[in-house]
């Protein structure tokens, strides 16, 4: 038993019960359906911008050439212009690939000890695979949900739904992204529970978002395929949220508590986002080891937090002591002025 994941797990269950009981028993549909989502979106946007602006205020560091390829040097040595870029274009390509393909994670290795005591490093691809599946499935799920927030639903969203439901099994047709999301997030959570080294470094704030997203996917799948909810009332509510013209309270009361649990999970995720590790959504763009070209030998980097230092240059030193230097027979850059020389 580990308090870090048990507390996170219990927190998610309690959150669901708060919303479910709050709507089904207490009747706080306005609170959970309208007020909390608005508050959460506001916290998300303001918190996100504040956080990133805090990062923006800090100075750009010296280039950190943690590289994965040959640096640009002599003309006859072929440089790796993507993994060790020296130009802005190369950096753009490197950042793009990092963001869409998680190349840093692809290089993940695992250290093991062989039976004879030797240490070996293995290429470990499953974290990368799990992360890729998770992020892309989540992205598709989020984009698909735009059908509840846009009227009329634009063609690209419909196309995405068609592709997502490509295999046409089940009714309503099963969306692959939902299933992949649930499996991937379960893998990423169980990995932290069952691999001892990863469990050791996992904190409650690693488990909580995973369980929360699992809860979101789980309640979503439950609503779509098993315990049915009235989709038209839900779209009436979501369209009310984005157009500020809300449906009657009777419509809100008609929606099942399961939906409010789902919506409350999403609200909690949004409000929690700016204060958590999930800020890597914005942070990935500002990772200094990825977004700076390795051009330390081409451009002079002036330390941005340099304060003005009073420097006594050699020229000033010579001005101070020229006569004495000439007297002592030391070489000087600037000879003595003629008047002074005559005095000699």
């Amino acid at each position: 038993m580990n308090v870090k994941y048990m507390y996170s797990f219990l927190a998610v269950i309690v959150l669901f019960l708060i919303a479910y009981v709050g709507t089904e028993a207490v009747g706080l549909q306005w609170l959970f359906g309208v007020l909390i989502p608005y508050a959460a979106l506001l916290v998300f946007l303001v918190g996100f911008i504040r956080k990133v602006m805090g990062w923006a205020r800090s100075a750009v560091p010296f280039r950190i050439p943690t590289t994965c390829g040959q640096q640009r040097t002599l003309p006859w040595i072929r440089p790796n212009s993507i993994d060790n870029p020296s130009t802005a274009g190369g950096v753009v390509v490197r950042m793009f690939l990092e963001i869409v393909a998680f190349r840093s994670l692809f290089r993940n290795t695992r250290m093991t000890t062989k039976p004879d005591g030797r240490i070996a490093y293995q290429w470990e691809i499953f974290l990368w695979l799990g992360a890729l599946a998770f992020h892309y499935a989540f992205a598709v799920v989020v984009l698909r949900h735009l059908r509840f927030f846009l009227e009329p639903v634009p063609a690209p969203i419909k196309l995405l739904e068609t592709v997502d439901a490509f295999f046409q099994f089940g009714l309503p047709v099963v969306y692959l992204s939902g299933v992949v999301l649930l499996i991937a997030v379960a893998y990423l959570a169980l990995r932290r529970v069952f691999i001892p080294m990863v469990r050791y470094i996992s904190l409650a704030n690693d488990f909580f978002p995973l369980f929360l997203i699992f809860g979101i996917a789980f309640t979503g799948i439950l609503m779509r395929y098993f315990s049915k909810v009235d989709i038209l009332s839900i779209k009436a509510l979501t369209m009310g949220l984005v157009s500020f013209s809300f449906p009657d309270t009777a419509v809100l009361k008609g929606i099942d508590g399961l939906f409010y649990g789902h919506l409350f999970f999403v609200s909690v995720l949004l409000a929690y986002f700016p204060f958590s590790k999930l800020m890597h959504l914005g942070g990935i763009f500002l990772s200094p080891t990825r977004n700076l070209p390795n051009d330390t030998r081409m451009h002079r980097h002036v330390n941005p937090w340099n304060y003005p230092v009073h420097v006594h240059t050699y020229q000033e030193y010579e001005d101070d002591f020229r006569e004495k230097m000439v007297e002592a027979g030391l070489p000087v850059d600037k000879p003595l002025a003629p008047a002074e020389a005559e005095k000699e």
Binding site: F44, L150, S233, A236, M239, V242, S243
Partner: peptide, 15 residues
């Protein structure tokens, strides 16, 4: 993030 707000600007969409 605020795209749905612009897209539906002022248009109520009752069921």
């Amino acid at each position: 993030v605020s795209f749905p707000f612009w897209y539906n600007l002022g248009k109520a969409a009752p069921p």
